[in-house]
């Protein structure tokens, strides 16, 4: 079933992706085709089959919790688009 433009805009909003009206139209088309293809999975009976999240089921990997040097602050801040003193500067979150 083809997606509607509203559905595409809703997904884009969940993903915080600013899309142009042309992109909304193009993705509506392409995503509908791709999602259609996914229907092929219904041919496989998965009654009682557990899901796989990771291939080899490693669990509870632990290491000693030891203090060690952290990242260099000036190196980290050098990659930040906006800084102020020792901080990353962001826009006001609440108006």
């Amino acid at each position: 079933m083809p997606l509607t433009a509203d559905e595409v805009r809703h997904i884009a909003r969940l993903a915080r992706l600013g899309l142009s009206p042309e992109e909304v139209e193009r993705f509506r088309d392409q995503l509908s085709t791709i999602l259609d293809h996914f229907q092929g999975l219904n041919a496989f009976d998965t009654e009682g089959v557990p899901p796989t999240a990771q291939s080899f089921d490693l669990t509870n990997v632990e290491r000693d919790d030891r203090a060690r040097p952290s990242a260099d602050r000036s190196e980290v801040l050098a990659n930040a688009p906006r800084t102020e003193g020792a901080y990353v500067r962001v826009r006001a979150v609440l108006d």
Binding site: A15, R16, L17, G18, L19, S20, E23, F27, L35
Partner: peptide, 17 residues
């Protein structure tokens, strides 16, 4: 995100979301 990511990346983020 709209300007920084290319088409295929946006497409996959959309599918995954």
């Amino acid at each position: 995100r709209g300007r920084g990511f290319g088409d295929e990346v946006k497409r996959r983020i959309m599918i995954g979301t």
